[in-house]
């Protein structure tokens, strides 16, 4: 059974239908891309999946349970994590604290236990910190634990956002333009990191991405949105050859260049 099954999802704001009747099925352990021109509704679709917006119509089944209309924190608890198009770290917290915030739902300390420093709290806190350091190491931020998020270089902020998302212990991770604003070297490293999320951690990945090299290299399937509607879905080579996609998004140069 697929990990995520979104069916006929629609979301409008006043007269504008940002996401129109979009369906998406994501198999466990796959890397799937959602592409489309600016304003096609990709981020809105992510926001619907993660509960920031409630869908007007449609169903979203994640891991066998309906999540449509649930609150973002409830959806995160069930195993969907995300990063943001415009990095949204907790800027004035350190790298490790950012990751610890991500662990919030997976830690159990209750207020009374914290006030009385119960043994469980005293054991949990160092464990959480150790785990946070592991995650930071995994994304390549070893030794930068105590740096304020806002003082990290741009590429590292993107990595930190992924580490923070991983801290929520997701099954599915949604990456919103993870390589935006990166130079070719950084893009390459980010691409490798995304592949490791699946290969080493066994996660399922959905990404929104504009860099076609990244999309074509790592996606197993691609969905194309335009004006809020899904106009194509398929393997990278199918999408590359799809006339409607080329017209809507890639432009004439893309096929000519190949």
């Amino acid at each position: 059974m697929a990990l995520l099954e979104a069916q006929n999802v629609t979301k409008s704001f006043g007269g504008l239908t940002a996401v129109n009747n979009v369906s998406l099925t994501v198999e466990r352990g796959s890397i799937v891309s959602v592409i489309g021109p600016n304003g096609a509704g990709k981020t809105t679709f992510f926001n619907v999946l993660t509960g920031i917006y409630k869908p007007d119509h449609g169903s979203i089944i994640f891991d066998g349970a309906s999540i449509a209309g649930q609150r973002p924190d409830q959806i995160t608890r069930q195993g969907i994590a995300r990063t943001f198009q415009n990095i949204r770290l907790f800027n004035n917290m350190t790298a490790i604290e950012n990751v610890l915030v991500g662990m919030h739902a997976r830690l159990s300390a209750k207020m009374w236990q914290i006030i009385f420093q119960s043994p469980s709290v005293r054991a949990e806190e160092p464990r959480a910190r150790a785990r946070a350091r592991e995650l930071l190491k995994f994304v390549g931020l070893e030794g930068r634990y105590d740096e304020l998020a806002k003082n990290l270089p741009y590429g590292d902020q993107r990595r930190l956002e992924i580490a923070r998302a991983l801290a929520t212990e997701p099954k599915l991770i949604l990456l919103d333009e993870p390589t935006a604003g990166m130079n070719p070297q950084e893009t390459l490293e980010a691409t490798r990191l995304i592949q490791r999320l699946r290969d080493e951690l066994g996660l399922t990945v959905i990404l929104i991405e504009h860099d076609m090299r990244v999309v074509m290299t790592i996606s197993e399937r691609i969905s194309v949105l335009d004006y809020g509607e899904k106009i194509a879905e398929g393997k990278p080579e199918e999408i590359r050859a799809n006339a409607r996609v080329v017209e809507a998004y890639l432009g004439r140069g893309a096929t000519a260049g190949d």
Binding site: P72, D73, F84, F90, A105
Partner: peptide, 17 residues
């Protein structure tokens, strides 16, 4: 930490569960 996260960015805080 959760309070601080809310103070910093509510949307990101809920998205972290």
């Amino acid at each position: 930490r959760a309070w601080e996260a809310i103070r910093e960015d509510e949307t990101a805080a809920v998205a972290m569960g």
